[in-house]
Amino acid sequence: MALGAVVLGAALGFAAVKFKVEGDPLVEKIDAILPQTQCGQCGYPGCKPYAQAIASGEADINCCPPGGEEGIRKLADLLGREFKELSGEHGIEKPKSVAVIDEQICIGCTLCIQACPVDAIVGAAKQMHTIIADQCTGCELCLPPCPVDCILMVPLPETLDTWKWKYPVIEIKSAHHA
């Protein structure tokens, strides 16, 4: 049986490479702009499905809160459409955060592991779980399934590695009137 699984896995892997459907280049391009949070706030089960929906004209370009205004601008540029404000019904743009499990409370139910779209949670049944901060996209999908509410969203602090120089102040004092 194990052999069967290995063979089948290999066959699947092979098929994935061999019969890889040449992705729609437009979908790829849209997907490249999307933040890959995989949060589903847009109403689709991930960034790729949303990209497909945009490409097919099914979805609008302003449904991605993590991508924010800049993401919408890029999509508008790519697709030659007008820029739109982020549609409020899908959520608001928030500072980038990561999920953190309060390890004192966690009961090891694995529900969050099953919910995480990017496999960023490590743990096993009845063992405490931990989120790999580097891989967490901040999608918040692990929050609702947690039966003990032990997951918190913590905004990423600015560090020496992530600190950025600010845009220089407008040099002419009344230039903003123009």
Partner: peptide, 21 residues
């Protein structure tokens, strides 16, 4: 980070398919 997330997301989907099979 986005590329990594995409990769992991796609791998997860692949794994789920595989597990089902």
């Amino acid at each position: 980070a986005a590329d990594l997330a995409r990769e992991r997301y796609e791998f997860r989907q692949f794994r789920e398919e595989r597990e089902k099979a």
